[in-house]
């Protein structure tokens, strides 16, 4: 139950952010965010059989992916303080917020299934 909830929330969240990124001209980051969304939504691929473990593997991978992408964003902001500071946009903050949930999902799936 909780796995499906996480997949829906995170898949939907990243899908919305991906569309906003593309609409605002950040096409490549939008593509990356939509891929992240797909990683979660493909967790619904097999409803029968090894359902929970299948979902868990998507939550785990999505969590790692989100962690790496957010890490890169944060490092970029921190390093930019050396010269011209880059200002995160509202969508960037939302991306980080959703990624925190993605990481919590990762910790949950890791404890329960791996």
């Amino acid at each position: 139950m909780i796995e499906s909830f996480l997949i829906s929330i995170l898949g939907g969240g990243y899908a919305a952010l991906g569309i906003i990124y593309i609409a605002t001209g950040n096409i490549l980051w939008g593509f990356l965010t939509l891929t992240l969304s797909a990683v979660y939504f493909f967790g619904f691929e097999k409803v029968l059989g090894s359902g929970k473990e299948h979902k868990a593997s998507h939550i785990l991978t999505g969590g790692i992916f989100a962690l790496i992408a957010s890490g890169f964003l944060i490092i970029e902001w921190l390093v930019s303080l050396l010269s011209e500071p880059v200002k995160p946009t509202t969508v960037d903050w939302w991306f980080l917020g959703v990624s925190v949930v993605a990481f919590l999902g990762f910790l949950f799936a890791r404890k329960k299934f791996v």
Binding site: A38, V39, L60, T61
Partner: peptide, 20 residues
């Protein structure tokens, strides 16, 4: 095993690679 299930997925594998 869990991660490979997604990373090497026939449809997701290429966009994940491009994203990285």
């Amino acid at each position: 095993e869990a991660i490979d299930h997604v990373m090497t997925h026939r449809f997701l594998g290429i966009p994940i690679f491009l994203s990285f």
